[in-house]
Amino acid sequence: MLGFIIQRVLQAMLVMAVMSALVFIGVYAVGNPIDVLISPDATQDIRTETIARYGLDRPLYEQYFTFVGNILSGDMGRSFVFGMPVLQLIMQRLPATLELTLVAVIGATLAGVPLGIYAGYRPQSPISKTIMAVSILGFSVPTFWIGLILILFFAVHLGWLPAGSRGATRSFLGVEWSVLTLDGWKHLVLPATNLALFKLAMMIRLSRAGTREIMLTDTIKFARAAGLSEWTILRQHVLKLISIPIVTVFGLEFGSTLAFAVVTETIFSWPGVGKLIIDSIAQLDRPVMVAYLILIAFLFVTINLTVDLVYALLDPRLRRGRAA
């Protein structure tokens, strides 16, 4: 088991090294940040001085090693545009994104699981068919389009909810949160719904498939024979058994929801990291792009590593035969 863990951790570190090099070279290839940093009427001296200050005159591999060394010591550089440390910038924006993602994923689970169980419990009923049709739409319609329609209907047409930005926040543990104020919730509802729809479709499908399988097993036959009410069966047996895959997916999907938040945040001008990265791409703010990509890569590598290790812990068969 220890060998397996070491092998996996080394593999994850190799992936991170490759990713960081790819990201660095890739971002290096986009545009020339000097045009953004220095006004065109600056003197030659100022140009050279600025280029030297950001280390842009040195060879690429040297810049890369400096960059890796800096990251390992916790310094991800300064944003060209905001003029502040990138890590600080990202940490400032991260709560907004985390909050949005959490509300979306939790909301999708709370709504999706009961709907899915119902659809699996009564597969032939018209309500179940409607639920499934909606979930197909949730899978195939692009997120940004649903966002537009939500804005058009609830913000422009009905005027019930604001169309963008974050609204009032309240400080808790030194971080600003929207979920603590009514105005914050008003601003949160539309983007969170937008982000949740894809996950909702997925939760519905998962719980429906699980419920249908379990309802056919002997467990349920015996529970019914024992005189348990249908409600108790659903709550005690079905919900308990389908919650295992749902929790797994919940964890896995959290990362990809963070990635999807880029689209939602752009549409709703939500001041999170996703909006930050899109703005940085437009303004050629290299350090922010690099730092964001590395953090996301790190996040995914960590999630995958954790899942692998937990599975290996639960299923001894996976520990063997992996060395090949």
């Binding site: 197909i136 195939s140 422009v156």
Partner: peptide, 24 residues
């Protein structure tokens, strides 16, 4: 869209969705 000129976004979007859903 905010000023109520919905058609510029909505019609291309409907075309897009019909295409994607039909292929799926």
């Amino acid at each position: 869209m905010m000023s109520g000129r919905y058609w510029i976004s909505v019609y291309p979007g409907i075309a897009l969705i019909i295409l994607i859903v039909a292929i799926n």
